[in-house]
Design a protein around this nucleic acid. Structure first.
Length: 595
RNA sequence: GGCCCUGUAGCUCAACUGAAUAGAGCACUUGACUACGGAUCAAGAGGUUUUAGGUUUGAAUCCUAACAGGGUCACCA
């Protein structure tokens, strides 16, 4: 990574280190500098309390002594001030020229992908095939996609995968209901999107099943008995048994209905702008892992109980006993996940695997990673669970049974409609072809949604209010997009640009503030990728845009007094536009040139 | 009940992982268009960071406890 701040920071830090040595005869570690708070003048701040304590001199005095030394010994330091023990360092013009030059790189902040090195795998989305995607999947997909983009930007090759939960009782429910009540309805015959069609029958099953249970309870049976005896549930279980036997009719129906769902998912993924390099299917992976269980038995990591089931005892690690193979020899969830993890490291040359999975599965992944370590896989410590929080509605959690679910397709459509209405009202798009307008409304509507979701720390749960919907003013996607469009307009108007002479330039504080913001881009990307935290980029771009808008509103660019000011400010605007576009790109958001 | 996570302005979120007077947006009040695009900018009001202790020169941040909310404790996935 090319971090422009590193040389300036490093130079100041080591100058402080030397000054401490020279003045007090003490060797300290290279000090960590922090950014000076906005209300004080200066760019970097060094806290002198620690040293003051060891040498027994008041912090302000220590600051004075070190600050004076810095002016002489460090070319990047122009001046300093001290407020209550905080030494605030003001940067010299040389530092600004240095930073300015570092920004003038074509793919600033983005490292070229090293194709020959091992890749990093990201698993996300991972839907069930019995119902369409909802708001929770949207957060998952946006996070997975964005994290992949960020990792790639650091120069790492990325392989994006999803595992599709295409087998089990849930899909049998949809299949059964379709057979009973469907009258041959298909996506073609009904014009319904395949995933919504299958979801409709999943709901139909649930409704009919409840009616059966209610009838059974009315005849005096307990809730438990009714659940077990309901004919529909028995039929569904029978269907699952036939599926596992490979019954031709059941398999054919299963394939057909899953294909409908995949087509539906594919359409939603395309709208969201996400994609995968490989799909894993549970119908294929659910047998994986049995060999690993055998291996674990040989290693003595697992043990077999009398009924034949296989377990691991994690109580010494503060966890519980966990089953890894059923008594009838079939897999549980853990078995598959063990096998699938192993398989992935065989399938690809990867040195890392990130699971984007909700925090309700924290315990599962803790156990999974621990077992893989105990099985002796060297890569086990390179597994990451990006545990994201649930998306709540204002009155609590989404509950599909109560119908309080925000559907992904509906949500995207609503966002597009809102963007269209707003754009029409503002009426800035005269002369734009209808097709371009429609594309722009998608860009803006989706931008609002994506930014709204990604600006929140992934690990935290968040609240989504469908009524108030997503705002288009303030700290929002369209606000950032607007700034980009305005910069694009500015550059169009400017035409041919003059070369910039940064050396000897008389910097305005508004300009250096933007330069300093821009200089933080590569570091922000690296940190966001390491922490798998797109919100860091979202918040960074917002801060940058606010700084630039302050400049834009208060300083004239095209009509600046001096020609060198015009040239520099235009170049600065261009760099801001580039970073906004690139940063939003990491979030899956497009920055338009006009809106 | 055991374990895990989270409590910050009326609402939605920040806070460089221990620093200065806890910051933004929405909503509310007010000001700025003979314009480089007002989806903007400038200002005001709004907080005992759930509570009580502790560690530290310094705590929203670390420790302990209480309270509140959520998750999880299946031979479901």
């Amino acid at each position: 990574m090319n971090d422009p701040l590193k040389s300036v920071e490093g130079s100041i830090a080591s100058a402080i280190q030397s000054a401490v040595q020279a003045e007090f005869g003490i060797s300290i570690e290279l000090p960590v500098l922090q950014f000076t708070r906005r209300e004080f003048s200066g760019t970097y701040t060094w806290v002198s309390f620690g040293l003051a304590k060891t040498v027994g001199i008041p912090p302000d005095d220590v600051g004075q002594i070190i600050g004076k030394q810095l002016i002489d010994s460090c070319q990047f330091v122009k001046n300093f001030n001290i407020v209550k023990g905080f030494l605030n360092v003001e940067l010299a013009d040389e530092a600004w020229v240095n930073l300015w030059n570092a920004l003038q790189v074509d793919s600033y902040g983005v490292s070229p992908v090293r194709e020959d090195e091992p890749a990093s795998m990201v698993e996300y989305s991972s839907p069930n095939t019995n119902k369409p995607l909802h708001l929770g999947h949207v957060r998952n997909n946006l996070l997975g996609h964005s994290v992949s983009e960020l990792i790639r930007a650091t120069g790492k090759k990325v392989i994006k995968v999803q595992i599709i939960n295409d087998r089990g009782i849930h899909i049998c429910k949809s299949m059964l209901a379709w057979k009973k009540f469907g009258a041959g309805e298909t996506p073609e015959s009904s014009g319904k999107k395949g995933d919504h069609l299958v979801g409709k029958y999943y709901v139909a099953f649930d409704r009919a099943y409840r009616e059966e249970m209610a009838a059974l309870v009315a005849t005096g049976r307990t809730e438990e008995q009714a659940k077990a005896e309901a004919p529909l549930m028995r039929e569904a279980q029978e269907m699952l048994r036939l599926w596992e036997e490979g019954d031709t009719a059941v398999m054919n129906l299963w394939r057909t209905m899953n294909q409908w769902v995949y087509a539906g998912f594919e359409a939603t993924y395309r709208r969201l702008g996400v994609s995968f390099d490989k799909n894993y299917y549970e119908s294929e992976t659910y047998v994986l892992g049995k060999q690993d269980v055998e291996r674990g038995l040989e290693l003595g990591v697992f043990y077999r109980k009398d009924d034949g089931s296989v377990w691991i005892d994690l109580r010494p690690d503060g966890l519980d006993e966990k089953v890894v193979l059923r008594s009838d020899g079939t897999s549980v969830y853990m078995t598959q996940d063990l096998g699938t993890a192993v398989q992935r490291f065989l399938d690809f040359n990867i040195d890392g695997l990130t699971y984007v999975v909700g925090n309700e599965q924290d315990y599962h992944f803790k156990v999974l990673f621990l077992i893989l370590k105990k099985l002796g896989y060297s890569w086990a410590h390179q597994l990451v669970h990006l545990s994201y929080g649930m998306v709540d509605l204002p009155n609590g959690r989404m509950k599909s049974r109560e119908g309080s679910v925000v559907d992904a397709d509906d949500l995207l459509s609503e966002m597009e409609t809102t963007a269209a209405q707003l754009s029409e009202e503002l009426g800035k798009l005269e002369g734009m072809p209808e097709a371009d307008k429609a594309a722009l409304y998608r860009t803006l509507g989706h931008g609002a949604l994506k930014y709204f979701i990604l600006k929140v720390d992934p690990t935290k749960r968040m609240v989504f209010n469908p009524e108030e919907s997503v705002d288009f003013n303030g700290n929002t996607g369209p606000f950032l997009q607007y700034t980009h469009a305005r910069i694009a307009s500015l550059l169009r108007k400017a035409g041919e640009r003059q070369p910039v002479a940064a050396a000897g330039y008389a910097w305005d504080p508004r300009e250096t503030e933007v330069v300093f913001q821009l200089a933080q881009f590569p570091r922000t990307v690296q940190q966001a990728a390491d922490a798998r935290n797109p919100a860091a980029v979202a918040n960074y771009v917002y801060e940058l845009v606010k700084s630039f808008n302050g400049l834009y509103q208060n300083l004239s660019i095209l009509n600046a007094d001096q020609p060198e000011q015009v040239a520099l400010r235009l170049a600065l605007a261009e760099r801001v536009g580039y970073v906004v576009r690139t940063g939003l790109g990491f979030l899956g958001i497009t920055a338009p040139d006009r809106m």
